[in-house]
Design a protein around this nucleic acid. Sequence first.
RNA 1: GCCGGCGUGGCUCAGUGGUAGAGCAUCGGUUUUGUAAACCGACGGUCGUCAGUUCGAUCCUGACCGCCGGCUCCA
Length: 606
Amino acid sequence: MPGEEVNDSLEAGLPLEQPEQPTLEILRHSAAHLLAAAVTQLYPGTRYDVGPAIEDGFFYNFGMPHGMTLGPSELEAIEKKMGDLVTQKIPFERQILPKPEARKLFAEMGQDLKVAIIDRMPGEVGEVGIYRTGEFVDLCRGPHVPHTGWIKAFRILRSAGVYWRGREENEQLQRVYGTAWFDQDELEKYLHRLEEAEKRDHRRLGKELGLFHLDPTAPGMPYWLPDGFIILSELIQFSRRELRRRGYQEISTPLINESALWKTSGHWEHYQDGMFLMEGENGQTYGAKPMNCPNAMVVFNLGTRSYRDLPLRFSDTGILHRNERSGTLHGLLRVQKFQQDDAHIFIAEDQIAAEYERILEIVDHFYGVFGLTYQLRLGTRPEKYMGDIDTWEEAERILKEILLRQVGESRFTIAPGDGAFYGPKIDIIVDDAIGRSWQLGTVQLDFQIPRRFACSYVGADGAPHTPVVIHRAIYGSLERFIGILIEHFAGEFPLWIAPVQCEFVPVQDDSPEVANAIRDAMHSMQEAGIRVFQSQSAGERMQSRIRSSELRKVPYIVVIGKRDVERGDNVVTVRDTRRNSQATLPLTALTTQLVTEINERRLPGS
RNA sequence: GCCGGCGUGGCUCAGUGGUAGAGCAUCGGUUUUGUAAACCGACGGUCGUCAGUUCGAUCCUGACCGCCGGCUCCA
């Protein structure tokens, strides 16, 4: 639901055609009007702004009288009032007015926010639509349901303070979010879906499965606990192997650098707010790195580089710190400490397209391994940018061309102003459990920073040239990537990254024979590289242990008891918790099966 | 940073202006069990922090810290 764009042209103008059957979108838009009608009735003097239908619901923004804010008790009253208006079956009445007349109407009602919308409309619009719902009048193109009685299944969900027109320097309005459906059953289903999504929440699963910890003494700076660390290191190991094969060289660089470095790179001027700064002994200022790029420039400059060395690919899985505004942190998905599978690739200008192609191939490979579907997004020149506009436009043109050629117009979007301060970028976007979009990987084109560090290589012509740099991260932030993975798999990870791959449960825990059999079995699986674990807690019943393994989402549970030992054939019964099935097979066969599943990086259920 | 909400034992949550409970987990004992919770008992909290109101505050007020939902910002 966040970041919804409100398009004025949809809000105001000539009314749209009424379809034969109202759609969900129409219903929700009408619900937004109903909400505004309720609020203006309850709180006279309320100024109303915009109220569109959004995914799964609707909202409306209000300028409340006397700086009033909307809390739970107000929301309850509003929902009740809406219910009253529903039973009255008030018709939505359409009217078309010349623009000046509409302006006058809203001005007389003191609805300055509506007047502002009219004033922002393009000059060629001569007439606008007005919808009346009893006393409530809204500037609107519609269409709407015939009357308020249609809005039977709705729920007010929450309120939020939002800046008028999304700009921080503007007045803050009160936004009320709600959801609406055609019938009660669909509403219930939606609320149920929200509950299900909550069970996949990576913060909840992270705690339940002991993957990571966020301590109040280090807000937004995750601790990786043993089981979570296994996931982290498996991902890094996988990436390392793939990158080495593709000609990357790994380096490691300082976490803290003196401000001189940041001044050279431009971070001092353009990114200081996002950095943690500290004093040095002699009064110098140091900053924890928010990005690895300046260090990569230092490494590049250590030697005389030739065009024959390019592309020169330095990967750096460094830990970064970014000082975020409080209130923006969110579990692993928005943090102040994270590790990136970062790399900086130094190339000649004519190598840009080919290198991008190679990188986008890696992206496709990596995301495919996890079964993640992603969107690409081109981020263009931001307000705070470095360098000259011509270079920027050239870079943006190159990236757009690459995207058009590689994936086609339908597979990417453009986010104006979303580029890094040193260059435009192509981002990889993935959704979380409740449909919020997050940027993971990023492939950024940079003509600026190498110039600032006076990087150069000797060209085939014998003359010095400035390299172009591609900053790229495939996972992006490992923290964020793992957060997404937790939700994507609901904690049921592919075997190759599952912290515990196989757990052994004894039927009797007072039998030395059983204990020995388990020890031997575990040993042989460990030798094959499988992460095995023995169920602890003496005195528990087998059922209780199985339950506890299931809750920790252990993929395979092997139960061994006296009967198995007496048979002496090394045949075990394994429970496949993902398929909820059981199989009886020789231990060696089980080992082979798991090793194959790990090596093939098979997805759960495939 | 802004708006709203929340902050009680390791976890999930009750509760009251007279300094607190439950279940799970942990620990001890009994049980030795064949595929999602055996039974009995014990330990455990200065109720986020700091001020204030009050005879007395976990409960009321304020500030701060953290968290949650949005806004803004971003990997």
